[in-house]
Design a binder for these strands. Structure first.
Lengths: 90, 90
DNA sequence: GACATATTTAGACGATTGTATAAATATCTC
DNA sequence: GAGATATTTATACAATCGTCTAAATATGTC
């Protein structure tokens, strides 16, 4: 369970990006226009999410499409359940 | 799901403190002696964890005993499962 | 009350972070 | 290749964060 994962989740803009991606995959521009900040700032957040392996990308011509990496979320849930869950000592 | 919760989890020392508290409740001093940093620094981390409601405290004479607030972890797991779980759209 | 122990709070400081603007890279169309 | 669009990278800067030392607070013992 990497440190970058928890740091990536610590910012509300990034969590909102992840929630947007649960609905459907989106291009960087589609994501950026949902936020009041500069495109470059959103791009920075996307980079952090990608470095934490929370999202994956695929180029589509001029566009870059982002999608959730659901595997990491499963690992995250397992982390919390096994260490801190109600019957983690069972 | 409060922002302070995710920020609190972003630091490895604080996550280690939480893991120590899964074993058993501990006083601030017992926790602090597990880390190479100054007691005051650990105390600061304990304050962050408490502000995020991840731990609760109880005074015992001179000592202050910390325990995990497992309820918050349950909410956290639910947050990840419902929003990002494999069948969150089911 | 005076002193010892346990813990937190205050203040300072360097490191990291989030945001902005400007420049760079990549792709598409002509 | 030139120009337009999509996106990232570079750089700068204020804000937040993690740690430290010193001071303050709380409790227990004498």
């Amino acid at each position: 369970m990497d440190d970058s994962l928890f740091r990536a989740l610590a910012d509300p803009t990034r969590r909102r990006i992840l929630e947007l991606l649960t609905e459907k995959d989106r291009t960087a521009g589609e994501i950026a226009e949902q936020f009041p900040m500069a495109f470059a700032s959103v791009s920075h957040h996307l980079g952090v999410l990608k470095a934490a392996d929370l999202v994956a990308t695929e180029r589509e011509g001029q566009f870059i499409r982002y999608r959730l990496n659901t595997t990491v979320f499963q690992e995250l849930v397992r982390y919390f359940m096994t260490r801190f869950g109600r019957d983690s000592n069972a």
